[in-house]
Design a protein around this nucleic acid. Structure first.
Length: 429
RNA sequence: GGAGAGGUGGCCGAGUGGUCGAAGGCACUCGCCUGCUAAGCGAGCGUGUCGCUUAAUAGGCGACACCACGGGUUCGAAUCCCGUCCUCUCCGCCA
């Protein structure tokens, strides 16, 4: 959510940001117009309240000479009150409207983000690792999974409908091993602190992180109780310090958390239906940072490297893509996607999205800090990135480490976590 | 889920209709004092919005709002009433 005064002072800039995001900039005009009305009304209401307060004060201090005068004062106050009763609802409606408008305006865009329309204009900034070569035709993971009987697609659908699956035997363990590996790696090598979070949150958390009100379609919820399944750990992470003012010496804060993620994926209906690339439920280890505004840019670079380190450790070839303005997410001012090579499906799979949201989420969730004990509170900056998303890493391991005999080798660094070196034909029942 | 108690500023804790944005203590900031083991003295010290001032989204002045949240009573509410949420204690239930 943006600062009204900033928008008023730099409205051309805000319109420009919307344009390069392929969004309609007229929302800014609406905001300006309503804000003008808002200020007028506030002034009106404040002066009425001020009058009213003075009258009450006079009565309280017995500043009247007889009962008639007292009744007169009460009458005056009541008259003002009638005025207020008319104006106040108008103001609160205006404020709701402005808030709704503001909540729907995406973040600004960092200077160095390439201008572009869609993912075709994204820029590959780094590619690392050799793409594996095979003396046979490598299979896509769903084929491998079927051959080895390690994923049960049909029965997953039987339980929960399309886009659900069951992982079996060593594949289930592989996934569990990866989660632990990711967590340990970031805790030990990158100094993140681990959190175990609620997987269900209140609406305000989704507003704070930027999922609501715009992306309600993608969320599972219990509307009766205002309980929402998290689409990413970023949502609870953003809100742990909601409405707090942090002392500067605790910054920067680095957190890592494993959660499942739940998404309806309505927008992507019909896309990526085969295999486990895009399910309604998937696991993810998320990285999150609370940092000083002046450091957020370099913190993003480090965040990306932290995520890349995992792929390096797993010997998986990857590339880093800088998203163009038109492809940026709602809350992000700058984003790097990390994509891993999947040798069977022969495509780059997004396994991480690392973003600097600047003060966008901090404003929404009202998270601030003080530079000195006496200075004014300022909004801090937040960053988030996957470190990493599980299913697609699993896909990459299955496809890149597949052998001619149909078995799957486990990356060296992962073996201490899996307890086995390869996946072979699994039990059927 | 049932019964009871309670939610006040960074923390603790007063405050049951007007003099309360809120006593007192702690913490913190600035200054003074003091050579001695978390000493003393003085001052300051919540957040937001609106207006004026300002180069300033720094500072100053003023107004308004905020004592969990939302509504109500009243000329006037932290204080009374209603609803919601949350915390604690006891009981029940349960991995």
């Amino acid at each position: 959510m943006h600062d009204l005064n900033l928008i008023t002072q730099n409205y051309q800039k805000y319109k420009y940001y919307l344009e390069i995001r392929n969004e309609n900039p007229s929302i800014i005009d609406q905001v300006l117009e309503i804000n003008k009305k808002r200020k007028e009304l506030i002034n009106q209401i404040n002066s009425l309240r001020s009058q009213k307060n003075k009258i009450s004060d006079q009565i309280g201090k017995r500043q009247y000479s007889n009962e008639e005068e007292r009744q007169n004062l009460i009458h005056q106050s009541n008259t003002i009150d009638q005025n207020l009763k008319e104006l106040e609802p108008v103001l609160s409606e205006i404020e709701t409207n402005i808030r709704n408008l503001l909540l729907n305006i995406p973040n600004i865009v960092c200077e160095d983000v390439p201008i572009g329309k869609d993912s075709n204009d994204n820029v590959v900034v780094l590619q690392e690792g050799d793409l594996p070569s095979f003396d046979f035709d490598p299979l896509p993971h769903w084929q491998i999974a079927e051959n080895l009987s390690i994923i049960d697609f049909e029965r997953g659908v039987k339980l929960s409908g399309s886009r659900f699956y069951i992982m079996k035997g060593k594949l289930a363990k592989l996934q569990r091993a990866l989660i632990n590996f990711f967590l340990d790696y970031h805790i030990q090598k990158h100094n993140y602190k681990e959190l175990y979070l609620p997987f269900i949150v209140k609406r305000h958390c989704l507003e704070g992180a930027g999922q609501l009100p715009k992306f309600e379609d993608n969320l599972y919820k219990d509307s009766e109780d205002d309980m929402w399944l998290v689409p990413t750990a970023e949502v609870p992470l953003t809100n742990i310090y909601k409405d707090e003012i942090l002392p500067i010496d605790v910054l920067p804060l680095y957190y890592v958390a494993y959660t499942p993620c739940f998404r309806k994926e309505k927008i992507a209906a019909g896309k990526d239906v085969r295999g486990i690339k895009r399910g309604h439920q998937f696991d993810k280890v998320e990285l999150y940072k609370f940092v000083l505004p002046e450091n957020s840019d370099q913190e993003l670079e480090r965040l990306v490297q932290d995520a890349c380190d995992i792929l390096r450790a797993l010997e998986l070839p990857f590339r880093v893509v800088k998203l163009c303005s038109g492809d940026l997410g709602f809350a992000a001012a700058k984003t790097y996607d990390i994509e891993v090579w999947a040798a069977g499906s022969k495509e780059w799979l997004e396994v991480s999205s690392c973003s600097n949201t600047l003060d966008f989420q901090a404003r929404r969730a009202n998270i601030r800090f003080r530079r000195t004990p006496t200075s004014k509170p300022e909004y801090l900056h937040t960053l988030n990135g996957s470190g990493l998303a599980l299913p697609r890493v699993v896909i990459a391991i299955l496809e890149n480490f597949q052998q001619k005999d149909g078995t799957i080798h486990i990356p060296k660094n992962l073996i201490p976590y899996t307890g086995f070196e390869k996946i072979e034909l699994n039990w059927k029942y």
